[in-house]
Design a protein around this nucleic acid. Structure first.
Lengths: 221, 221
DNA sequence: TTGCGGACTTACTAAGTAGTTAGTAAGCTA
DNA sequence: TAGCTTACTAACTACTTAGTAAGTCCGCAA
């Protein structure tokens, strides 16, 4: 639901949608709003109108569920990034699209799944930890490519290492999400995201499109 | 422990330190590393070498404990900010000292208490929620004063509203803390914090002290 | 010395936690 | 139609959770 518009997995048994996916959908929302320790099997089972025990049929343990959850989230997230890369765009537009992934979550009252898991990192089983770190690493790698592109095409300007800038984008957006949620205020996120991204956009006569693009992107929520 | 060096509250009964404070100290560390839902009375009791039930003597409910915890944290935090204001400094040095409060927590492997609580905001009892929001509001108010000072004295330069900039500093630092923790890497926080703050420091011939100050501050961890 | 109150402990409860077990009903396949 | 798989349920275990109630210990003041 949050990242891509959900590919509506067609059931083999005609009437009902794959139960494992529905479990993950419900768990995803619960993790993004309450954290991994903030819900129980009973919460998922109640929404599915099923016994808690039956969840163990699909996912042996809560850790297994969590691992599957982060993996699916990570893969969907990068599918969305590939979608951004699909048609040729300038770097500022890509960053703007990147930020929109975050604000889309916030609009549903959700934190980024991996941002939420980062908060409770110490309480996570090892396999989940690895998935979370991998999520951030791959985000960084994608951003580094966009930043390099922007530098080459002259649309972005920044000092310091590309990795450091990529990291500051990730942490800036995650932090903006974290703080905006208690206020229930998407505008608060938008404002911080716009500041962050426009500080990278190269100021020039022709930059109205680029900087303006970032503003446009984040002001449509 | 995290913010100010703890005023070692002298006991009335000579030998032992006030138990309520010790409970809060232990709870504070647990919340900052695991979240409010990530520990139980048993965890605190074990560290205090006391029965879980006896905690109820000092704090009627877990919510009461949490409320007292955030209130104490908030008050200590602002005592630290007043300490920064005490001797006259230029705005960049104040921002640098502000960032150091965050990195001090990270050095102990801790998240900002209110950042952690912001993640689990939906799971908090109402009185705790109010304390958390108040923490961020008062942070913003302090930062606004520093930003105004910097603008007047010519050490800071930024576009847009002062509140928006203050908010982006808070969320930038909270986010940097959030992401740095899974990596166990203070340098990662430092790098993001330095980028964030130096982007506000006015570039000039005499700015070596200011910008350099921010760099110095965050490179001593 | 007696009594009082602060700071507990012992012993409990009710509810919730993940997870296990054996069994069932429906459908698919050979 | 026999044997298998899928997707469960009912009933449990073992444990943890916050919270309660009643009683104990101990220093201190009258």
């Amino acid at each position: 639901m949050p990242i891509s518009p959900e590919p509506t997995p067609v059931s083999k048994r005609a009437e009902q949608i794959d139960t494992a996916s529905r479990i993950l959908d419900i768990a995803e929302e619960l993790v993004q709003t309450r954290g991994f320790g903030g819900f129980s099997y009973a919460d998922i089972a109640a929404q599915l109108d099923v016994t808690p025990a039956s969840l163990h049929y699909h996912f042996g343990s809560k850790g297994d569920l969590g691992e599957a959850l982060v993996r699916r989230y990570r893969m969907r997230f990068f599918a969305a990034l590939e979608e951004i890369d699909r048609r040729p765009r300038q770097a500022p537009a890509k960053l703007e699209a990147y930020a929109r992934i975050y604000s889309d979550a916030l609009r549903l009252g959700r934190m980024c799944l991996c941002g939420m898991l980062a908060a409770g990192y110490e309480t996570l089983p090892e396999p989940m930890r690895q998935e979370v770190v991998r999520f951030f690493d791959e985000n960084e790698a994608w951003l580094v490519r966009v930043l390099d592109q922007g530098r080459k095409e002259g649309t972005l300007a920044f000092t310091g290492g590309t990795s450091a800038v990529a990291q500051s984008i990730i942490s800036g957006l995650e932090g903006a999400l974290l703080i905006a949620r208690p206020y229930g205020d998407v505008g608060r996120f938008r404002s911080a995201a716009t500041r962050l991204l426009t500080s990278l956009v190269r100021a020039s006569r022709t930059s109205a499109g680029a900087a303006g693009g970032a503003r446009t992107a984040s002001s449509r929520g």
